[in-house]
Amino acid sequence: MSMASADNPPPPSSSLPSGATYKASGVDLDVYAETMSRLPPLMRRTYTPRVVEWPNGFAGLFRLDDRVRLLTRKYHDPVLVSSTDGVGTKLKLAFATGRHHTVGRDLVAMSVNDCLCAGAEPLFFLDYIAMPRDNPDLTASLVKGISDGCLEAECALLGGETAILPEMYHPGEYDLAGFCVGVVERRFLIDGREVRQGDKLVGLGSTGLHSNGYSLARKIVFEIAGLTPESIVPEWGRSVADEFLEPTRIYVRAFKTVQRSYRVKRTIHAIAHITGGGLLDNLPRVLPRGVEARVETASWEIPPVFPWLNRVGSVPPEEQYRVFNMGIGLVLVVSDYYAEAIARRIREESDTPAWIIGELVAHPEGPEASPRVQLI
């Protein structure tokens, strides 16, 4: 009896059962085609005149400079700014409730808000959706949320990828990732170089948990408190699912409000997106050595979800401000002179809560000490 070897391999068909198909292995190309047919309208509603359409193309096209009447853009020394992120274990709530229409907005927010920290205008966004079986309705719901987020962020949903990966995920589960590209003139790049002692901190309100701290929040709600997604929490005035699936706030309009108001003066010296790590870890990232950020924790309205979680879970105070955003989703480090006016304009013109929550002072350990946050 002869045996197969590298020089005498078996016929290719002998390694697969007779009649094996892609569909039998878990990927139905006909259903996939149906899914793809639903997505173009959701993308086109976000297009700006700078999008260059490439029907059936393999990549998204975007014109950086353009001359379209009032929308004309001309950059002299542009810097491209990019960011990528996911939604994290917040998706577990979407799986448990079957409510998938909001997490796409979270996906956009996490990347777009990061780009704002460099002073960039978001240009376009791409998404990646992975699931075990093709589901046209689910995919359309997710992309609708992403499209809604892009409209709010004033950027184009330029493309994406839907990957069908049998056996990689449990039935009914999926994962999301997003990618944002923005642009800023180099002379307007916000990189923290102008941060100085005496600057004020303008905190922009969050909508709640946003997309961070969900592993701890879920443990407190479902394991310690023994609640379900449908449980009503009186202190919140809503259900667990309603609170936990509230989308992350997108701060593009608030940021552009400040940009429009101060076209020449550089009033914003740094911006910190308060995500994983909270105020304690994220704010020091944009501060120089020798500076301490004194944050007055009574200066803003803390959403009721946070005191409840901290009380029920007996969460230590420092842990609270390192895991949760505690009601502040973005912090602008601004010139002392303009702080009050900036906070007022953001509140009035972008419908975003904003407060002066602290200031920068000399670090008590000297000019070479690493920056830190002091909660007072």
Results as ranks from 00 to 15, higher is better:
205 G>M: 02
70 L>H: 14
30 D>G: 01
203 G>S: 08
19 G>N: 05
360 L>I: 08
314 S>C: 15
17 P>F: 14
259 Q>P: 00
271 I>L: 13
105 R>Y: 02
326 M>I: 10
349 E>I: 04
221 V>A: 06
200 K>D: 07
260 R>S: 14
152 E>P: 11
113 N>G: 10
108 V>M: 06
207 T>C: 02
65 D>Q: 13
346 I>G: 09
26 G>V: 06
339 A>D: 12
271 I>W: 13
77 D>Y: 02
375 L>H: 10
290 G>M: 13
49 P>M: 00
47 Y>H: 13
41 P>Q: 15
44 R>C: 07
366 G>S: 07
103 V>E: 10
170 H>P: 08
274 I>H: 12
216 L>Y: 14
77 D>V: 07
103 V>W: 10
258 V>Y: 04
311 R>G: 07
333 V>N: 01
232 I>L: 07
195 V>Y: 01
277 G>W: 03
324 F>R: 11
365 E>C: 04
97 T>S: 04
219 K>N: 14
251 Y>L: 06
301 E>R: 11
82 S>D: 06
188 F>E: 12
97 T>K: 02
29 L>W: 10
45 R>A: 03
163 A>H: 09
302 I>Y: 10
18 S>G: 11
373 V>Y: 13
64 L>M: 08
257 T>I: 03
348 E>V: 00
4 A>T: 11
42 L>N: 00
151 L>P: 00
109 A>R: 12
182 G>V: 05
169 Y>P: 01
297 T>L: 05
290 G>E: 13
272 A>C: 11
47 Y>I: 07
171 P>F: 10
218 R>G: 08
93 L>T: 06
262 Y>L: 05
48 T>L: 03
338 Y>A: 12
80 L>V: 00
148 D>M: 05
15 S>Y: 15
80 L>D: 00
229 P>A: 01
168 M>T: 13
94 A>P: 00
21 T>K: 02
130 A>I: 04
158 L>E: 01
146 I>L: 08
69 R>W: 14
360 L>M: 04
111 S>V: 06
333 V>C: 09
52 V>M: 14
180 C>S: 11
76 H>E: 08
339 A>P: 05
92 K>L: 14
234 P>M: 14
143 V>F: 01
89 T>I: 13
168 M>S: 14
370 S>Q: 13
45 R>D: 03
115 C>N: 11
345 R>A: 05
219 K>P: 08
9 P>L: 15
37 S>K: 02
95 F>L: 02
113 N>Y: 14
354 A>T: 00
280 L>Q: 04
181 V>C: 03
245 L>N: 02
190 I>Y: 03
183 V>F: 08
114 D>Q: 09
97 T>C: 02
259 Q>K: 12
290 G>A: 12
150 C>P: 04
136 P>R: 01
197 Q>Y: 02
